[in-house]
Amino acid sequence: MTADPVADSVAESAAGFVIGRRSPAAAYSDRFAAASAGGAIRLAEIPFLTHLNVRADPASPAAERIGTALGVPLPVEPGVVTEGGGLSVLWLGPDEWLVVGPDGAARELRERIRGAAAGEHVSVVDVSAQRTTLVVAGERARDVLAHGCALDLHPREFGPGRCAQTLLARTGVVLVAKEDGFWVLVRSSFAAYAAEWLLDAVVEYTAVECRG
């Protein structure tokens, strides 16, 4: 009698088998590493970051208390990121922010924000699974992104500490300028497309050694 693989896997789960997580761009890690080998560009995924969507009246005492509880004020100026203590708080709209933290921090952060809200009209939603984080760094990072993004990415306009929701290769992204490159927060279902597009866009900066 041959074993039934489906039944076997079910039995294993019942016995406490833990199903592994797989990040949306996990399949691209090797190609990202190969594209990064030349040094002009670095592509990578930072999987499983915690993303919390927070909505509150920016002028309310609750907004100020949330900033205090996070140790990072909620930015009120459009397109600004505040950072500290391993957290980044991205301005998404006049009453909307994305709190980005390390993997596994969602529950604790959510409770901290809820506690600070203290019953005021505030919304906190764990949207960690909505997007993954791609890194586009290296000296040609701006050139690569400019292939598919209409924003002025010059450091004068979009230097570290700036963020924008915009289109990259017609895909909605949150673009974040970090000290050492860019984060591209892309929806999980678009991650493969964005990865393919980036790998194509970097060819002219990475393919020199393949010419001869």
């Binding site: 459009p78 397109g79 209409a150």
Partner: peptide, 11 residues
């Protein structure tokens, strides 16, 4: 009025 000048495609 919040984000500044952007492509029509974003609207």
């Amino acid at each position: 009025p919040w984000c500044g000048p952007r492509d029509e495609a974003e609207f």
